[in-house]
Design a protein around this nucleic acid. Structure first.
Lengths: 215, 215
DNA sequence: TCAAAAGTGTTAATAGTACACCCATGA
DNA sequence: TCATGGGTGTACTATTAACACTTTTGA
């Protein structure tokens, strides 16, 4: 009874993943040298093709795991890109996901193995096809929900200072934020809680460490 | 050089379209009796399969045109749905679009030809597969941007009263709105402008007609 | 004259923005 | 003792929310 469907064409479906990380005060993006033609050797998002036995969501997870060693990271779908000529080699419909991860938890031989690297978000090189457009849309999207949800909980170490959190917000949004206003707005969020610990690594005086509360 | 891709599987890709309309003070959804197995005869969103020579966006346009006769309607992508078993017949990846249209401009023999009909948004029957979930997500999405953009310009006739516009907003958001606050917020929007015309159809006193300004 | 929808302002609460100084400490 | 990053409060502005009566007119 499924024969009715069979008059329709089938397509390659890829997932492209926009992986954000954070270190040294700036937002980073994980990119790779493209291993296929067309565009062999160009910079691109990390990605892969969807397989028969995996959902598109889990396909995105597999891509992330392959490149970073991380499992069970919360990924969100950005959008499907389906222009006929978007991939000059062959028709490929791409479903784009994004995630924000803690770079320090990644396996560290990753970059060599897959020719991948982290780049500053404001220094992303020209990427193949429509990948730069994807990155722009994803960055815009994460800025929008930044204060409503604990989006950036994965970008920071388990315990972090408010200064770290602020520079992360600034980096994602691309603007600078008043310290007092920022701290007040964070104080209202239930998902960020102060711990008893003090971090002395970054200042003589020491800064209180916070964590994202789990719920 | 495209041979590398060919080790990967290909998929049927459908577009499902969530078409909102508005009449008699309530938001409506266009649904059809499913013409295929599995699920033959069940209610479903209007949809179709993507063809080789069309982008996913234009595929959605074609679906809309087929069912309504309308051309060049602004459609937005909601999300791609790609669970392995979402269609029990065969693996189909569905890309979901939504649009808001003026029901009165539709060709009116449409319902018979394709077994389609309009239903009140609060009385949507059980739809096949994951289609109800799609509708819920779309309704949530349109409520969010309602005051920022002239989203509902297509749902109303060219000239409309503020009462009509208000009940449309109420119907989309599923809440009731204070008349004075609503009218003030609309007065601030540049994209809604008052005309000299008065509509005497709905009240003895008559109500000013407004229109969406084009820009 | 009355029923029915159109139209109209004010006040209170809340959220957001701008802005500058003292604190604690180790070197 | 001083350089460095950590930490704090207040006044102003803009936005949102709550709330009830008068107007017009055809039947």
């Amino acid at each position: 009874m499924t024969s009715y469907y069979n008059i329709y064409p089938k397509f390659l479906v890829s997932v492209d993943c926009i992986i954000f990380g954070f270190s040294e005060g700036t937002l980073k993006l994980l990119i790779q040298k493209r291993p296929y033609n067309p565009g062999l050797g160009m910079w691109s998002l990390i990605g892969g093709f969807v397989e028969q036995d995996e959902s598109i969501d889990s396909s995105a997870q597999h891509v992330l795991t392959k490149f970073t060693g991380l499992h069970n990271i919360y990924m969100r779908q950005l959008e499907a890109f389906g222009e006929v000529e978007r991939d000059p080699g062959q028709r490929v419909i791409s479903i784009v996901y994004y995630a924000l991860i803690n770079m320090n938890n990644c396996i560290n031989n990753m970059p060599k193995e897959y020719d991948a690297k982290w780049v500053d978000i404001d220094k992303v090189p020209h990427l193949c096809f429509d990948h730069n457009k994807m990155v722009d849309k994803a960055r815009k999207k994460i800025s929008e929900g930044l204060l409503d949800e604990p989006i950036c909980s994965n970008l920071l170490p388990r315990f972090f200072t408010l200064s770290q959190l602020q520079s992360l917000h600034e980096s994602i949004m691309g603007v600078s934020i008043d310290k007092r206003n920022f701290r007040r707005s964070i104080a209202e969020k239930k998902y960020v809680v102060k711990t008893e610990m003090i971090d002395k690594g970054n200042s003589r005086r020491g800064a209180s460490l916070y964590e994202f509360c789990s719920e």
